[in-house]
């Protein structure tokens, strides 16, 4: 089956989830109570804001991941044909990975990979 199967799968997932949630809505008799809407924080009222400005450290990971993942994509076509191309491709990969590794070391030295 072709790419259309993806549509089928998405539809199946949506149908399954919706069916489950709807079924539980049908079966259930819910009562209204303001306490039910409180966020869970170990049984005591929340202190302060929940949605705070988050430490930028978290986003560094996303950035670094993006860089590395794009590099990784470049490697896929290379990997398919490396056996045919022989040592030339290997040297190429060494250079490529070396640059990548240098970038990685730089990020590491700068402390971008430390959890805040």
């Amino acid at each position: 089956m072709g790419p259309a199967s993806l549509l089928v799968l998405i539809m199946a997932a949506v149908a399954f989830s919706t069916a489950g949630i709807l079924l539980s809505k049908v079966v259930l008799k819910a009562s209204k109570n303001p306490v039910k809407g409180e966020p869970y924080e170990c049984g005591v009222p929340t202190i302060g804001q929940n949605w705070v400005q988050f430490n930028v450290g978290y986003y560094l990971f996303a950035l670094i991941f993006l860089i590395f993942d794009v590099e990784l994509i470049f490697l896929y076509p290379w990997a398919v044909s490396v056996q045919r191309l022989g040592m030339f491709a290997f040297t190429e990969a060494v250079i490529f990975l070396f640059i990548l590794f240098m970038g990685f070391l730089y990020a590491h030295k700068k402390g971008a990979l430390k959890w805040m």
Binding site: P39, Y40, T46, W51, F54, D69
Partner: peptide, 20 residues
């Protein structure tokens, strides 16, 4: 919810890292 928020941030960093 603060727990959810922390959990989500953690899993974001974690999953993208191990993706590599």
């Amino acid at each position: 919810n603060k727990y959810s928020l922390l959990g989500a941030m953690r899993s974001g960093a974690q999953i993208v890292s191990y993706e590599l």
